[in-house]
């Protein structure tokens, strides 16, 4: 079962996660341990990378108009900074005593903290990217909501002109997102829903045209045509709502996996 829900996050963190796990096991198996080498240089490397991440993170916070990102990201940055301090302390303690057990514990704690903090930060960023896709999906939902008040061919042309670029964007972004996910079930749902939306779009437009024509001629069947149009708009709405729901999933349902 994948631990990280996107391929990008997985490719960045999975190798480090495995190495940290191995370090913990080695530490537990060799309880007394050999003398630790001088870790000043690699710890300095981490501290410098953390400083850069904090700088980039703060710039991201300041330039973002996503209130949730602005609220959540500082905590993740603090976590990474704190973990880097633990590593620096561990390095200092090991320099004084290469066999120090508290220093080794601090080293493991710091490494885990870096991993967890970076993971939180990437998750914050990823969720913000997902919210951008969701806001595009909601724009399409807003258009679908007005399908029932379109009662002239002129309005229908306008409707199609407005809806098409939005739908193309949603299609492109949701398709890109599904390719990014590590969870196959979520990928499959997004692919299926997107295909449904694509299939239903021309059918909905056709049903709207039929309704407008019947309405204009004052003929029979107007009510049925309206109901058919509403049914199709509702089906598209349901599919888009399912896309929105699945886009927000980051944890794995064990039963679903079984």
């Amino acid at each position: 079962m994948p631990v990280f829900h996107t391929k990008t996050i997985e490719s960045i963190l999975e190798p480090v996660a495995q190495q940290v796990s191995r370090l913990v096991i080695l530490h537990e198996e060799a309880e007394d341990g050999n003398a630790m080498p001088d870790l000043e240089k690699p710890v300095f490397g981490v501290s410098r990378a953390v400083q850069n991440l904090v700088k980039v993170g703060r710039e991201t916070i300041q330039s973002s108009d996503d209130a949730i990102l602005r609220q959540d990201m500082p905590a993740a940055l603090q976590r990474v900074e704190q973990a880097a301090r633990h590593l620096e302390e561990a390095s200092g303690m090991l320099k004084a005593d290469p066999f120090s057990q508290p220093a080794r514990k601090k080293l493991i704690e710091g490494s885990r903290g870096i991993l967890q903090g970076t993971s939180s930060l990437l998750l914050c960023f990823d969720e913000s990217e997902v919210r951008k896709i969701i806001s595009e999906c909601k724009r399409v939902l807003d258009y679908l909501a007005v399908a029932e008040v379109v009662d002239s061919l002129e309005d229908l042309v306008r409707f199609v002109k407005d809806l098409s670029p939005c739908l193309s964007k949603v299609s492109r972004e949701v398709d890109g997102r599904q390719k990014e996910l590590t969870h196959q079930v979520h990928r499959d749902i997004l692919i299926r829903c997107l295909e449904e939306v694509k299939t239903l779009t021309p059918i909905l437009i056709c049903s709207m045209k039929i309704y407008i024509q019947i309405h204009a001629q004052g003929g029979k069947g107007g009510e049925e045509a309206g109901m058919n149009r509403d049914y199709l708009a509702q089906r598209m709405t349901d599919e888009l709502n399912e896309i929105i729901r699945v886009l927000q999933l980051t944890t794995y349902d064990e039963d679903e996996w079984d």
Binding site: R48, T118, L121
Partner: peptide
């Protein structure tokens, strides 16, 4: 994008640190 690059750098630096710290322990196990 810059966040991802910065996170990659942290991962690489942490990886180097953990490898260095593991090396001494591995000799014992």
């Amino acid at each position: 994008e810059m966040i991802l690059e910065a996170a990659k750098s942290i991962a690489a630096a942490t990886s180097a640190l953990v490898k260095a710290a593991s090396a001494a322990q591995r000799e014992l196990v």
